[in-house]
Design a protein around this nucleic acid. Structure first.
Lengths: 209, 209, 209, 209
DNA sequence: CCTTAAACGAGACGGTACGTCGCGTCTTTCA
DNA sequence: TGAAAGACGCGACGTACCGTCTCGTTTAAGG
C-alpha cells in the first residue's frame, strides 16, 4: 500500500535527513566517478533531494566535497608495539598504505589536497584533521625506540621538527609511491623503507642533529 | 634502426611549432587562471592554434597539463655536482621545493594526481612523463656518490627498486611537507632530510639490502 | 478533460515568451543569412535565449525551421469570400505565390522538404505543421462553392481525398511553376489555373467521382 | 590551337577515372545519407580518391552534387498512346511518380531545387535539363487528344503557355503529393487527377482561354 | 633516358557550428 | 513556508566537416 521510497517524499520532514544523506551520496559519487566526474545534480539525485536544497547548504562543489570527505580522516591509526623500531615502521607503513588502498580514502585525500592548493583555510583544516592527528604515531614510535635503546635519549626537550621530518618522510614516501609513481606498497618495499629510516635515524641521532 | 615502427610518415607532417607553443600556452594559462579556470579553447587561442589541433595531440585537459608540467620538471630539475652526496640531496630538495612553490606547478600537479586516482591511463602517463623522466636524478646522484666512495660500489647489476625507493622518499617528503603538512621547505629542513638519507643509505648499502 | 496527458506540470513552467521569440528570430535569421547560413547559436542570441533552451524545444535546425515557417503560412493564407469559386481560387493562388516570393519562405520550405526526403519524422512534421493546417482553405472554398450552387452538394459524408487532391494540385502547381519551371505566377497564369480547376471540378463532381 | 585555354598540358594528366567515380560516389552517398548528411570526405573515401582531388575539380558541395545529379534527369519519359487523353494522363502520372519513388531521384531533385532557390544560373540549368526536356510530353498528349477529337483543334498557332500550365499542374501535383503531403500516388489518385484535368481541359478549351 | 611538372594519396591545419553537459539561479506547485 | 521539480542563462566541452595547406609519390610528356 505504501511505496517503499517514492511518491510521498514531499514536504518538510526531509530537512533533518538531508544533510547526512547528501554527504553520504557525495562520498559514494566521489568513489564511483572521481573528482571531476562528480556532479551536483547526480549527488542530489542519489540523496533524493532537490538541487536547490543542496545549494542552500553548501556554496558549491568544492565546499560540499570537503565536508563530505572530512569525516574519513577522523579515525586514528594505531601503533601496536611490534618489538623493534624497524618492525614498528614496517607495520605503520603497510597500515597507512592499506588505508590509501580504499578508493574513497585515496580519492578523497587527493581531491582535498588538490583543492587546498588554492585555499589557505582548507590547508589549515587538513593539517589539523590529518597531520596533527596522526603525529602521535611518530611520537609513540620514537619514545618507544628510545626506551628500547634503539635511539639515544633526548638530553633536552624533544625536538618537534625532527618528528615532523619523520612524519613527512614516511607518509610522503607512501603517498608518492602509490599516487605518483603508481607502484604498490608491498612487504618488500616497506621493509626497505623501514631499514633506510632506522639506519638514517641512528646516524642522525648520534650526530645530535 | 632509424624509425622503430612507422617508416611511412605519409601526409602533411605535424607542425613542429604547435606542440611547444601549446605547452607554453598551457603553463601560462595555468598561472593566470588556475586549474579549474583553464580552458582548452583558451589554451588554443593563446597558442595561436585551432582547438582541433590540440585535441589531435592530447586526449584532454589532464593529459595536456601532465605534459605541460612535465616539461617544467625537465628544465627545472638538474643535479650539478655539489661535491658530496649530502650536498647533492640538499640541493635537489630545495630545487624541487622551488618548483612546487610556483603556483602553476603546485596546482597542476595535485589536480592531475587527484584526477589520476580514478584513471589508470592518466596514472601511467604521469609515471611516464614525470616520474620516469626524473629518475635519472637519483641514478646520477647515486653513481656519483659511489665514485666518490660515499657509497659502496655495486658488485652486480644495479638495483632499480633501490633507486625508486630513494626517489619516492625524497619527492614524497617534499610534496607531503608542502601540500599536506603545509610547512615550508627551508634550508634547515632540507639539511636534516639530506643527513637522514645519507646516514640511511650508508647503513642500507653496507647491509647489502 | 483538461490536459490530455501530463497532469503533473511540476517544476518551473516553460517561458511563454521564448517560443515565439525563437520562431521570430529564426525567420529573421533566415531572411538575412539564408538556409545554410542559419545558425542555431545565432538564432538563440537573436531571441535573447540560451542555446539550450532552443534545444529543449526543438530537435534541430530542420524542426525549428518547419515550425517557424509554418507560422508564416498560418498568418498569411486566408480565404476571404471573393464571390465565386474561380475568384477564390485565383485569389488564393496569388496569395500563395506571394508567400513563396519571400526569400525566407522559399528557401526554408525547399530546404526542409529536401531534407525530409531522407527523414520520415521530419516528413510527418511538415505534414502536421504545414499541410494539415492549410487544408481548411480547400474545405472552406469547396463548401462555399457548394452553398453558392457552383458545385453540387455532397449527398453523403464529404470525401477528404477529393479535397486533398485539390490541395495538391493548387499548391503543387504554384510551387512547381515557381521553383522548378522558374516562371512567375502572374495574374494571367492564376486565372488560367483557376478556370482549369473550376471546369475540372464541375466535371468531376457531376460524375460523382 | 586545339585546347581552348590550357596551352600547356604539361605534367601528369588528370585521372580519367576519378571524375565519374566521384560523381557515382556522390549519388550513392546522397541516396544513403541525404543532402545534409552528405560529406565531401565521405564521397572522396567512397570514390577511392583524396579530398584534394575532389576540390581540384569542383568548387564545393553544391557544385559537386548538382553535377552528380544532372545525369539523372537526362532520360526522357515516354508517352505511349493509351487510347484516350485520360488514359494518357493517368499513365504519365504513374510513370512520373515511379520515377520519384527511386530514392536517388527524389533526393536529387529536391536537393537541386532547394539549392536553386538562391542560384539563378542553377535555376536556368534545371529548366533546361528537366522542364524543357519533358515538355514534349504535354505537347504530344495534347496534339494526340486533338487528333482524337477529345480537345478542339487550335485555330491559330499553339499557345505554349497553355501547355506550360498543364505541365506545372501535373508535375506539381505529383511532386507535392509525394514530397510535401507525404501521400502515395496510387492508381486511384492518378485516376482522379486525370479526370479532373480532362474535364478542366475540355472546359477551358471550349472557352478559348 | 632522364628531367620536369602537374596531379595524386594522405593527412594535419585554422575555422566554425554542432549538440551535450554541468553549473548555479530562478520560478512554479505541492504538502 | 520549505522543499520537489525543473526550465533558464551561461559557458566549456569534445566532435564533425569545411576548405586549405603541405608533404612525398606517381605518371606522363618533352628534352
Amino acid at each position: 500500500m505504501c511505496q517503499p521510497s517514492s511518491h510521498r517524499p514531499s514536504g518538510r520532514p526531509r530537512s533533518t535527513d538531508a544533510g547526512p544523506a547528501i554527504l553520504a551520496a557525495t562520498r559514494a559519487a566521489l568513489v564511483e566517478l572521481g573528482w571531476s566526474g562528480l556532479t551536483l545534480g547526480d549527488v542530489a539525485a542519489r540523496a533524493g533531494v532537490a538541487k536547490t536544497t543542496l545549494y542552500r547548504r553548501w556554496a558549491g562543489k568544492n565546499e560540499l566535497v570537503v565536508d563530505a570527505v572530512a569525516a574519513l580522516f577522523e579515525e586514528q591509526l594505531e601503533l601496536p608495539d611490534r618489538g623493534s623500531l624497524e618492525a614498528d615502521i614496517h607495520g605503520v607503513v603497510l597500515c597507512f598504505a592499506g588505508l590509501l588502498d580504499r578508493p574513497e580514502t585515496r580519492t578523497a585525500l587527493m581531491a582535498v589536497v588538490a583543492e587546498a592548493t588554492a585555499d589557505e583555510a582548507l590547508r589549515l583544516r587538513i593539517r589539523a584533521a590529518i597531520v596533527d592527528r596522526q603525529k602521535h604515531l611518530v611520537l609513540t614510535g620514537r619514545e618507544r625506540a628510545q626506551r628500547r635503546g634503539e635511539l639515544p635519549p633526548d638530553d633536552g626537550p624533544a625536538d618537534p621538527a625532527r618528528d615532523d621530518l619523520i612524519f613527512d618522510v614516511v607518509a610522503g614516501a607512501v603517498v608518492h609511491r602509490l599516487m605518483v609513481s603508481s607502484q604498490p606498497v608491498d612487504d618488500v618495499w616497506a621493509h626497505r623503507l623501514a631499514r633506510l629510516l632506522v639506519a638514517g635515524l641512528a646516524g642522525v641521532y648520534t650526530d645530535g642533529a
